[in-house]
């Protein structure tokens, strides 16, 4: 399997506080990796380093052969290829649902307005929200918002998707619809890195589960091994609390 993302010796500090203390990992093409761990373990920070939303303190992150830590790399170009879905959706409230999805392709002149609108509708159809195209984000439920956010991040045809606790801000009855959308993406062969607390999703969908704690990767492997039969004390301790 070709490595889509290569991370070497990644460190990240916020002032005095070192959050990531040296992360090494390769993520293969089409692989679905779930990152689990207690809050404060650095898993969200790790994810945000993969598209340079956080400036890296030390180490190297290579995405699609682009060294995104290199100042010469055009980070905007690389980001077009990396979709990101946030815990709090971050939809643009002053734009309709369709405009949210169209914004990046039109602004970055990837296609005409007409084509972008058609593409937006097909993506909205894919997440089951074609009838909401003219609505504003404030008129949607949490689950619907997150599905729009997924459609929006797919609009630039990324081949990697980052999910930062995509269901943590949702009411329980809406978690399912978002996870279903993500499952479809995984089945379609998308490379996905998912920071999540949904152990069911991790077990069922992911190819690999990564357990992080205290700024390190403690344990990783197939979900049945890590979740059902953890080797490390800290993993056992964490899983005993969440399962």
């Amino acid at each position: 399997m070709k490595a889509k993302v290569k991370v070497r010796g990644l460190k990240k500090s916020f002032g005095e506080n070192e959050v990531l203390k040296g992360i090494d990992i390769d993520i293969g093409e089409g692989e679905v990796v779930c990152v689990i761990g207690p809050s404060g373990s650095g898993k969200s920070t790790f994810l945000r380093c993969l598209n340079q939303l956080e400036e890296i303190t030390d180490g190297q992150v290579i995405v699609d052969d682009f060294d995104i830590t290199d100042k010469k790399t055009n980070i905007n170009k690389v980001r077009e290829n990396i979709g990101m879905v946030f815990q709090h959706f971050n939809l643009f409230p002053h734009k309709t649902v369709r405009e949210n999805v169209m914004l990046a392709p039109v602004t970055l002149k990837k296609c005409s307005k007409q084509e972008a609108a058609e593409k937006a509708d097909s993506l909205l159809k894919r997440v089951g929200l074609l009838d909401k195209g003219d609505a504003y984000p404030d008129e949607l439920s949490g689950g619907q918002k997150q599905r729009v956010a997924i459609a929006r991040s797919l609009a630039m045809d990324p081949d990697i998707m980052l999910f930062d606790e995509p269901t943590s801000a949702l009411d329980p009855e809406m978690v399912g619809e978002v996870l279903d959308t993500m499952k479809e993406l995984a089945a379609a062969g998308m490379t996905m890195v998912v920071v999540t607390h949904e152990m069911g999703f991790a077990r069922e969908v992911s190819d690999r589960v990564v357990f992080m704690d205290g700024g390190y990767i403690i344990e990783q492997g197939a979900p049945k091994d890590v979740i059902n039969n953890p080797q490390e004390e800290r993993t056992k301790d964490f899983l005993s609390k969440v399962l």
């Binding site: 905007n76 077009e80 946030f86 956010a149």
Partner: peptide, 10 residues
């Protein structure tokens, strides 16, 4: 909002 826009490549 800024992060979402930047993550799309803007």
């Amino acid at each position: 909002q800024m992060e979402a826009a930047r993550s799309l490549g803007l």
